[in-house]
Amino acid sequence: MDEEGYAGLYFRDVRVITGTPVADARGVMLWEQKAAAWVANHSANEAEFEELAKAAEGIDADGEIEDLEALADLPATLAEDQHCLWGLDLGVSGLSHVLSALGFYPVASCRSHLAHSWSPEPVVLFASDEDRLRLLQPFIAESGCGLGLDSSRGHTLVVVYAPSIVEMLALTASIFDARASFRSLPKTARKQSQPDEVVVAAPEEGRPTLF
C-alpha cells in the first residue's frame, strides 16, 4: 500500500483506510445515516439526489461546507458534527470505515453516479481473510446486498454490491452491531487462498435506484 491505496490496482484519488478506530467508524456511520435521510427527503428525482449527495460529500470534519447554496437547509446537527464522509461517497463511506474497523481492508468504493461513474451500482471492494469473509456472508444476504469476487485488475478482491445505498446502509448497521464477533477473530497473519465460493443471493438485476 502507498498514498494512492493498494499499489498496482490503478484506482485514482484514493487513500488507505485500515484499522479505523471503532468510535470513528461509528461516527461516520451515524453521520452518513442522517445525511442520507436528509438528502433523500429533499430530493424529488435522481438528479436532485445526485446534487445534494455531492454537496454532502463536500462537508469536512470542521463543518466547512463547499456548496452552501445546495445545503442551505442542512440540519445544524450535521454541520456541527465533527464527523463526515472523509472524502468517500454517501452510502458507501460508512461501510468502508466499519469494514476497516472490523479487520477488513477497503480498497475502493462508489455509490454510482448519473454520469461518469466507474460502477453501475453502489459497490465497496475490499480484501479479507477467509474467517471474516465467512462471518460476513449471512449479513450480506440479510441486507439485500450481493457478494462476489472481482479479478479485473489483476488481483482478486471481494466486492459488495447493492441495488441502492439503502441496502448498503442496512449492511453497515448490522455488521457494526455484530462488531464483537468480527473483532474477536485473529488478525490476518498469512497469505490467504481464494475462497471456493463467496457468492450469495444477488439483488435484483438492473440499474439501481439511488434513493
Rank of each mutant, 00 (worst) to 15 (best):
D196L: 11
V200A: 01
L74N: 10
L136P: 09
A76T: 07
Q194G: 00
L147I: 11
E64P: 04
L68I: 10
L71G: 10
A44Y: 08
F211I: 01
L68R: 14
S128L: 02
D131Q: 14
F176S: 03
A79S: 14
L74G: 07
D13T: 13
K34A: 09
A115G: 06
H42W: 11
D81W: 10
V39I: 13
D150N: 02
A141E: 11
D81P: 12
A101E: 06
C145N: 10
V199L: 03
A44H: 06
L133F: 08
M1C: 09
L30T: 07
E57K: 10
V123C: 15
A40N: 03
P106G: 12
L78V: 13
W86D: 11
L185R: 02
S43I: 08
S181W: 07
R190Y: 00
A35V: 02
G146E: 15
S112A: 15
S109P: 11
A162K: 03
L125Y: 14
G94Y: 05
E57Y: 09
E4L: 03
G63Y: 13
E32G: 14
S128C: 10
E57N: 08
Q33R: 15
V160H: 12
S93I: 10
W38A: 04
A70T: 15
R183L: 15
V92M: 10
N45S: 15
L95T: 14
H42G: 00
E57H: 04
A189I: 11
L78T: 07
